[in-house]
């Protein structure tokens, strides 16, 4: 047991997931944002295999501070797959808004960018009769390293149960371009930003801990005796706890006998 996975089996499972869950809804197509990073590139590769390249619509949505290399990588991935690809720059929309709030910090600006991109994807979802594919991996989802109703919004997420280190493994299997696999992961909100620098630990370190903590359900004592630093364990535990709201639906005040999601419980694939 461990983080290493049989990538052929995983590929088959995730391709099947996209195909069946898209077709079930009665559509044939998917849209996704292509950032130039590995997560969205991997989802594009899975979607192209599941639905056929001509049924996948990618949107590259740079802001003026986005690295030009990101856009170039996104286009390389789209071209290799032969999927539809459009560049929709979000600078004007985001600037128009922040001209009212010039003092807004990087976090507000980053969130706004992520949500701007979400509205573009959902607009094309309606225009194309296509489902929005999510590109958040399990590491990001557990740490809350994403924007609620922004990059975390989607209809289907094929990679939400695989850690970043598993994203790397599967990307090798799928043939994602080398330059995308090998570069430093980055949210690309400002120049020189990298995930690992911002988070303060590497994905390999945190994935190893998350796997033992979440998947194997080891206690704090067991984690320590397995060589994990107690401070690191506490930091990550708090991050998971404090970001839990991002992984849940909005909380509804209960007044009736049958409240949505609490005692009104149906699967989403109800009737499908």
């Amino acid at each position: 047991m461990g983080l290493k996975v049989n990538t052929k089996l995983l590929r088959q499972l995730l391709v099947g997931f996209i195909r069946e869950e898209v077709y079930k809804v009665g559509v044939r197509k998917a849209v996704l944002g292509l950032s130039g990073g590995i997560d969205s590139a991997l989802v594009a590769f899975l979607a192209a295999e599941a639905l056929g390249a001509r049924n996948v619509h990618a949107f590259v949505m740079p802001y003026r501070t986005s690295s030009p290399e990101s856009e170039a990588h996104a286009l390389v991935a789209a071209e290799q797959l032969g999927i539809h690809c459009q560049v929709v720059e979000i600078t004007s929309m985001v600037e128009a808004y922040f001209s009212r709030y010039p003092d807004a910090d990087n976090m507000r600006r980053g969130n706004k960018m992520a949500r701007e991109r979400m509205t573009i994807l959902y607009d094309h979802s309606a225009a194309l009769s296509a489902l929005v594919l999510g590109t958040s991996n399990k590491t990001e989802l557990l740490l809350g390293y994403g924007t609620l109703f922004g990059d975390m919004a989607s209809a289907l997420n094929p990679i939400g149960d695989i850690y970043k280190t598993q994203v790397w493994q599967l990307s090798e299997e799928m043939g994602v371009p080398r330059e995308i696999i090998e570069k430093q992961p980055s949210a690309d909100l400002w120049a020189g930003q990298t995930d690992e620098q911002e988070l303060g630990f590497t994905y390999r370190e945190v994935d190893e801990l998350l796997y033992h903590m979440v998947d194997l359900r080891m206690s704090h004592e067991e984690l320590v005796s397995n060589g994990f630093d107690a401070g690191f364990i506490n930091t990550i535990y708090r991050k998971i706890q404090n970001s839990h709201f991002k992984r849940r639906l909005p909380v509804i005040a209960k007044v009736s006998n049958r409240t949505i999601d609490r005692d009104f419980r149906y699967s989403r694939d109800w009737g499908k």
Binding site: M1, G2, K4, V5, N6, L9, L13
Partner: peptide
């Protein structure tokens, strides 16, 4: 339900 991906050939 299929679950438990690892290095093994099967779930």
């Amino acid at each position: 339900p299929g679950r438990g991906i690892s290095e093994d050939e099967s779930l």
